[in-house]
């Protein structure tokens, strides 16, 4: 977060750099700018820009018990994934900071493998494994699969946060009479809170947005919203999808904003 502040304070004198930055940001946000207006379309097919406006696709989304059920499934899965992946990834990152540089580098490489490997391979693998274990189409199955995808993001963000942390503080706390878990909870944790929150947010969004693995291992009663959206796209293309996407965007953005606001009040004491 120190880096963010530094960029904010730095004086830019390169207009081209500014321009390029704005262009890239615009390019990244472009799909959002298209999807949201489309969701308010009055037509019964996806069109941009919409010729008429209505809330009918939101009504169709919120009125459908099937869509609502898969939304609840997705939110539940994302919530459970966050709850499991965040402590798991944070503790892994904490542990990795105590290993030698070589072990750490190798572990970091292994940790990011799930990000590098094409998700479809993971999905196929998980599907076959789950077929044997009977975990396909279960909440447990999806949560485990999503957790394995989300943990690397938590580890990477928390490792980055711990890089700036002075571990002598934890030693000091322990010499002053705090047990190791207590030193971790009362001294280290408050100072890497932001990284952990960021990691949790990434875990949540990773799960909520995940399509490929969900296509294979979720279904029936426990189909995630992304899976149902994909299926519905195949059958009939109507702007309900756009309305749902807009809702997902809003959930993600508000989660991000919450973390940022939450942290703003605490960053003042950091050196």
């Amino acid at each position: 977060m120190a880096a963010v502040e530094m960029v904010g304070k730095r004086k830019y004198n390169n207009l081209w750099l500014d321009f390029a930055g704005v262009c890239i940001l615009f390019f990244l946000a472009l799909p959002t700018f298209i999807v949201i207006p489309m969701s308010f379309s009055g037509a019964s097919y996806l069109e941009f820009p919409p010729e008429s406006w209505s809330f009918r696709w939101y009504e169709s989304y919120f009125g459908s018990s099937e869509w609502m059920r898969s939304t609840r499934t997705s939110l539940l899965v994302a919530f459970l994934t966050t709850i499991i992946a965040t402590p798991l990834g944070s503790l892994a990152a904490y542990g990795l900071t105590f290993t030698s540089a070589r072990v750490r580098n190798v572990s970091q490489l292994i940790v990011v493998v799930p990000i590098l490997v094409p998700v479809i391979l993971i999905a196929i693998g998980v599907f076959h494994l789950y077929a044997k274990l009977g975990l396909n189409y279960t909440i447990t199955g999806i949560v485990i699969a999503h957790t394995s995808l989300a943990v690397p993001f938590v580890i990477i963000t928390v490792l980055a946060g711990l890089k700036n942390y002075d571990f002598n503080q934890e030693l000091a706390a322990r010499s002053l009479g705090a047990s190791r878990p207590r030193a971790l909870l009362t001294i280290t944790l408050p100072q890497v809170k932001f990284s952990i929150q960021t990691g949790a947010l990434l875990a949540f969004i990773t799960s909520l947005d995940e399509v490929v693995v969900s296509m294979f291992v979720s279904g029936g009663e426990n189909a995630t919203i992304t899976r149902r959206m994909f299926n519905s796209l195949r059958d009939q293309v109507d702007p309900t999808i756009a309305a749902i996407s807009s809702c997902l965007i809003i959930i993600s953005v508000s989660a991000l904003v919450t973390v940022l606001i939450f942290n703003r009040n605490q960053s003042k004491d950091q050196i």
């Binding site: 002075d166 002598n168 503080q169 030693l171 000091a172 408050p190 605490q266 004491d269 950091q270």
Partner: peptide
Amino acid sequence: VFQNYALFPF
């Protein structure tokens, strides 16, 4: 007492 003080900044 540590070299870099190791005070708790928060």
